[in-house]
Structure formats: structure tokens, C-alpha cells
Computed example of a mutant assay.
Amino acid sequence: MIGVLIFPDFQLLDASGPISAFEIAARYARQTPSIKVIAAQPGPVRSTAGVEMLARKFGPASALSTLIIAGGEGVEAAARNACTLAFVRNVAKRGIRVASVCSGAFILAEAGLLDGKRATTHWQRTRQFLKAYPNVKLEPDSIYVRDGIIWTSAGISAGIDLALAMVAEDHGEEIAQKTARQLVLYARRSGGQSQFSQLLELKAPNGRFAPLLTWAREHLDAPLTVDDLADRAGMSARHFTRAFIAETGTTPSKAVERLRIEVARQRVQASSEPIERVAEITGFRDPERMRRAFIRAFGQPPQALRRAARAG
């Protein structure tokens, strides 16, 4: 049985997304879906959308095969609930697969289950999470991360990617792909893929380094090394790197790569330019280097994105 843990002011899609993925996969596997919504206090639990889910009281941990913990605005209060923390610890102690969606990682961290482990959460929560839980090996750029029996995922829709990865583990890749198609997802994203929201943020930068990022976007064919950017900002490379990470939540090198990826994606989808030419113009130089960057960011090579855009 799959348990989905919610609390007052949880994010609705954090719970309903994985539920739908597991339900559809079970039917493809010719099984009866076995999913239960649970909470510290049974009864109707209100989400941030105002929509309620009917939850049961925590039951025996041994009855579960997987526990999914939702995120949402009420996660801080939930992470202080002794009953919730004790239940989550008990589930993990039994070796049962435990996962969080979005800010649900705060509950896992508060329960002590992420100490020394790799994890991720929504990119907007990165600084708050790192400050509260410095012993966690946070990977803020990942869609989802698995470390042993503990799984964590990024914001909202990434919970579906995490659920599909679990479906692939439980039922095989074919059923996972069928489930993704039924959910009208173009493809199942890999865990190492970048959180796309961060790419979007860099398209319209603001704050201290906005002029620098705008300039970099207009000069993608230049090397744009850390030294180049630091010199443009009038700072030492060391000071610049620290200040840039504090301001944007990412390194200068990754920011430049994201700018290159986004501009390259636009040219790949909207034009018939040779892939080699796009790689040259956007500063990747080597088409293979651009291909690897596309797979990290979108889960697909440039040619696949071009074919999909033309088909659309």
C-alpha cells in the first residue's frame, strides 16, 4: 500500500500528482490501486487551494510499501508535529521507501532522515533549507534525488517524475512510459535533469547581477569564464563567485550554461539552422557538448526538441 501524507495547507498537486501516477500504473500492471491518504489528524484536510482531501489516521507502518510526503505552505507546522515525525521515522526504520515532494523534504530533514544524505527540494526553498539543515547534501538543481530508501523531489510537478521513477522500479520501464503517456507527459524526466524554473528565472533576471546576466545573454559566443564575468562586474573572481551564488542560488558557470541552453533551445525549435551552427553561436562550440547540456536540462537532445516543435 502507498501512503500519501498530507497536513493543513498542503499543496494539492504534491499529493494528487503521485496518486494519479500510481493509480494509472497499477491498472496497466493489472493490479487494483492501493493508495491511502493519511494525516496526523484524520478527516477533511484543507489544501492551500481550499480543496479538501479526506485523510485517515496514521496506521501501522508495516502496512505501507511506500510513503510519499507532500509539501506546501503548512510544512513548517507539520515538521514540528511530534506525531508526524515519529511516524515518518518509524516507517523509515522498517526499511520502507520514503519520499518527499517539494518542501516535504523539510519533514524528512526534521525527522533526521536526511543527515549526511543527498536530497533536493523546490529551488525557492534552497537557502532556507541549507540554513536549517546544513548536514544535508542538498542538490538544489535536481528534479529528484534517491539516496538509499529515501527519495526527495523538487517542486510540485517533479513529484510526478519521482512517482514515475518508482513505477519504473516496481513495474518496469514500459509501464512507466505508458503511464507518462496517459498523463500526457512528453517524456519521463530523469532525476539529474535541471529544475526548469531556474532556467526561466534567468531569462528575466533581476537584482544585483541583472545587468551582468543581460550582457552575458547578448555575448554568448564569448568564453564568459568566471574571470571574465568577475572583471565585468568589477570584482575579484573569488568575491564575485560567492556574491553571485548568494544572490542567484547557482554558480556563475551554471548560470551561463542555462542562458546558453535557453537561447539554443529557441534557435533549435524556431529555425532550420544546423545544430553545429547553433552550438557555435551560443558558445557551446562543440555540438556534443550542447547535446549533453540539453539532455541534462530537458531530458532530450536538440534534434528531438526540433522534431517535436515541427510536429506541433
Rank of each mutant, 00 (worst) to 15 (best):
A26I: 01
A61N: 09
A111L: 05
S100F: 03
G50W: 04
A154Q: 00
A255Y: 02
F58R: 00
V98C: 00
A105F: 02
G50R: 02
R46G: 13
A29E: 09
A99Y: 09
P60Y: 12
A49N: 15
W215R: 04
E174F: 11
I295S: 08
L164A: 06
E23G: 14
A26L: 06
L229N: 04
T126K: 08
N206E: 14
D286A: 10
E73V: 13
A86G: 10
H219Q: 12
D147F: 08
A55E: 06
P211R: 05
S62E: 12
W215F: 05
R189N: 02
R258Y: 12
P205S: 04
H219C: 11
I24N: 05
G148Q: 07
S194N: 14
N81E: 02
G72A: 10
M166Y: 09
A39K: 03
A230D: 04
I275G: 14
D170N: 11
R277Y: 14
A216K: 01
Q128C: 14
G104E: 06
A39M: 03
D170V: 06
K93I: 14
N90H: 15
A216E: 04
L183S: 00
E257R: 10
A237K: 11
F196V: 14
P301Y: 09
A243V: 11
V91D: 00
I107D: 05
I24F: 06
R118F: 08
Q31D: 06
F22G: 01
I6D: 10
D231G: 09
F129I: 05
L202G: 01
S190C: 15
R291M: 06
R217S: 08
T120A: 00
Y133V: 03
E173H: 14
K254M: 08
R125I: 07
Q193R: 08
L114C: 02
L138I: 11
R289L: 03
L12Y: 09
I156S: 07
I6A: 01
R189K: 05
A233C: 04
A304K: 15
K93N: 13
A15F: 02
T214A: 11
G112Q: 02
I150Y: 00
A187Q: 07
M166V: 08
Y28F: 10
A92G: 00
H171E: 12
P60K: 09
A311M: 07
P8M: 03
K137L: 12
A243E: 09
P287H: 05
A21I: 06
R94M: 14
